[in-house]
Nucleic acid binder design. Sequence first.
DNA 1: CAGCTGACAATAA
DNA 2: GTTATTGCCAGCT
Length: 106
Amino acid sequence: MPDNREGFFKRVYEIVGRIPEGKVAAYGGIARMLGCPGGARTVGWAMRSAPEDMKLPCHRVVKATGELSPSHVFGDPEIQRAMLEAEGITFRADGTIDMERHLWQG
DNA sequence: CAGCTGACAATAA
DNA sequence: GTTATTGCCAGCT
């Protein structure tokens, strides 16, 4: 495909914005949709640079293991947890998400 | 121009 | 089962 890195951000924003409510996507999962299976870090880095103006549900993007992203990202550790809980995401006793129930695949 | 960093993931010990 | 290390892509310094 023609534009790859040019619209990498846009591509990530689009995928993240397509995550349905009550579901979560892994960084590596999104990277895989983009065609970059090893671009897990790049996806996360794109989120960090993603402006709030996009209203991207970054809280729906978590690690492949089901762990939430580092707390310092949202400012407080319970922010993402509360958001996902409000969305209908179920957490395990470890505080990780049930990827088997909420793992979203494009 | 070259090297480093960063919201990860997978493999090895 | 847990911990440590390496690999990946794109943007910055």
